[in-house]
Design a protein around this nucleic acid. Structure first.
Lengths: 141, 141
DNA sequence: CTTTGTGCAAACACTTTGCAAGTCC
DNA sequence: GGACTTGCAAAGTGTTTGCACAAAG
């Protein structure tokens, strides 16, 4: 199983972890969930793939994935934690507070903002998934 | 009690709410907490001012303050919800993932980023408190 | 066969809710 | 008095942990 040209199995073994059936199932569930998914959704999807998976297994798996940088977490519109497969390129979204829709932001726009912060404050920004909340053109008319 | 030139009492009464002793105590606690504070910290501070204040009162008061736009909430470095007194100017912070320190970002820098998003995506950004995570100059050396 | 992971149950932390008594106007 | 609030207790939710058994290397 390979996503984003990453060899998952190797990544686990290099860190003394095991790529078990359950963890494969969970990764598949996250993929099926598309972009970002909250715990609840991943759990339900994983359950349909393997009814015996336990909540605690899922929590522990997510923690492992994050440790391995296979998954990262972002904050949703109401502070819920969302999990997503790490992509090679950092990416960013505009999220509409009104309808919940999301638009992906051109990375360049964000990068120039980060560069300004780096220049002005000598701060090395490390966010591979920025969420900016606002109101989309559709809702503001 | 007036902060930021806002007349709190009036704001409550205009919305059919009451500015009770407990709510005054809680607002004072948030102020004493300085910038952003998590529930736990506000609760402890409020307890020192009035030992009989209950958790549920605090939750309900915070919800009321947010409804009245006296307080807003942001996400901390590990997803905890932080509460803070609303300021007149939107403001933004760089938060160091390493040492947890915070620097306030010049609002102009952020505004030009927002303007770029507005121009490119016709998105009206509405965030009065952006947190950008990274590594500060001190930690990166 | 040693180490790591799983499922179950229990514990823990965080937040919300119902209600009787109290407070504010 | 009438509407809003409080404190308490109880219930919901979300997350973590201990442990015996199972699986992986």
């Amino acid at each position: 199983m390979t996503h984003n040209r990453i060899n998952y199995l190797e990544r686990f073994h290099n860190n003394g972890l095991r790529f078990t059936r359950q963890r494969q199932t969970i990764l598949q569930a996250i993929c099926e969930a598309g972009g970002h998914a909250p715990f609840r959704e991943i759990y339900m999807l994983a359950k349909t793939l393997d009814a015996r998976i336990d909540r605690s297994t899922l929590y522990r798996a997510l923690a492992a994935f994050i440790r391995l940088d296979l998954v990262n977490s972002a904050e949703g519109i109401h502070g819920e934690r969302l999990y997503e497969i790490v992509r090679e390129e950092p990416h960013h979204h505009l999220v509409c507070r009104c309808c919940g829709s999301e638009i992906e932001i051109e990375n360049q726009t964000v990068q120039s903002f980060y560069r300004a912060l780096q220049d002005d404050y000598d701060y090395h920004v490390h966010m591979d998934h920025l969420l900016v909340f606002g109101v989309c053109s559709h809702c503001s008319t």
